[in-house]
Simulated scan of single mutants.
Amino acid sequence: MRLRAEHIEWRVHGHRLLDDVSLTVEPGETFGLVGPNGSGKTTLLRVLAGLRRPKVGRVLANERPMRAMRRHEVARTIAFVEQQADTLDRLEARQAVALGRTPFLSPLRPWSAQDDAIVDRALADVGMQSMADRLWHTLSGGERQRVHIARALAQQPSALLLDEPTNHLDIRHQLSILTLVKQLPVTVIIALHDLDQAMDCDRIGVMDGGRLVATGPPRDVLTLERLRRTFGVHATLLDDPDEDRPILRFRHAL
């Protein structure tokens, strides 16, 4: 799926959170959104996911204006994993993941063995199959985050949007989730706090003060000058001997 934002603006109580943001993410691309706290990453993701309708500008999914799409159409094609989502305490992990199939169900299309198989696969993909029967309130923050990602995978979306999905995960599960996301045959837009993780994206966009100030391949965008100007840090770029990408080493803040 190609997702395109055209001249998006979003205001809250007169404060502009997004300022003339235009962006195109190509089918199958993994696009990283980075920027300081409060730069507009989450707001932009919610607009792209169809959860917020901008008063200025528009979002297109495969060249179709999202305003013209019904809610269930959007839910069948775009999945959004929030940074801090919640669900009912009395739900089991598997039941929470099964909610991802809701947009596809109707009186004429009830739950089927195919839905069971999709939920099982989603749980396995995030390493939660052994905890499928656990109640939500007994899960750790990291386990809950993996369940939310599994629920998004159960939607079998054409585009997957994730807001800092590794925040509550230990390093092993961070790496496994990022590897899984990179391998999915879908369009991915992922907001990341860790700039080293952003180096693995196909392209990245830098948000600053509600504006998209730079886009392109990570090594072209995350220059030492950009890191100093936008993130307020001094850094060094080192070559990774095992992979064809640089490693960021931060020395100190300005």
Score class of each variant (00 low, 15 high):
H13T: 12
M1S: 14
V221E: 01
D89W: 02
E92I: 12
V56E: 10
G57R: 12
P246S: 13
G35H: 05
A68N: 13
L99F: 09
R76Y: 02
Q145W: 01
V188N: 01
I171Y: 09
V74Q: 03
I189P: 07
D86K: 05
H15N: 11
R109H: 13
R245W: 00
P165G: 12
K41Q: 10
G35I: 08
V97R: 00
N37T: 05
H137S: 14
H193N: 10
T77P: 06
D200C: 04
G210Q: 02
V12A: 08
A253H: 11
R2P: 09
L88P: 11
G216H: 03
R90K: 07
A98P: 04
R67D: 14
A191S: 15
L17C: 08
M66R: 04
L33M: 08
A5K: 00
L222C: 07
C201W: 00
W10Y: 12
P27C: 11
A159K: 02
M131C: 13
E26A: 15
H168K: 03
D240M: 13
W136Y: 11
D86E: 11
R211E: 02
H252M: 08
H13M: 11
F250R: 13
S176L: 10
V126R: 02
T87A: 08
D20K: 07
L153I: 06
D220Q: 15
L254R: 14
L3I: 15
Q129F: 00
Q155P: 03
L108A: 14
M69S: 05
R144Q: 12
D242M: 14
I189A: 03
R52Q: 15
V74H: 02
V59F: 03
Q145G: 13
L51I: 06
D200F: 01
R76S: 10
F31K: 07
H148E: 04
L160R: 09
R52V: 15
D196E: 14
H72C: 10
L108Y: 01
N62H: 10
D200M: 09
L224F: 06
S158K: 13
V181S: 09
V25T: 09
M207R: 00
G50E: 01
L33I: 09
T215G: 03
H234Q: 11
W10N: 06
V119N: 04
P54Y: 11
E73Y: 07
R16M: 04
V221H: 04
G35N: 10
T87E: 00
F80I: 06
H7L: 09
T187H: 07
R229W: 01
T87P: 05
L23M: 10
R245S: 07
D208W: 01
D200L: 08
A150Q: 01
W136Q: 02
L160T: 04
M1G: 11
L254I: 15
A132E: 00
T223P: 11
T30A: 11
F80Q: 06
C201T: 05
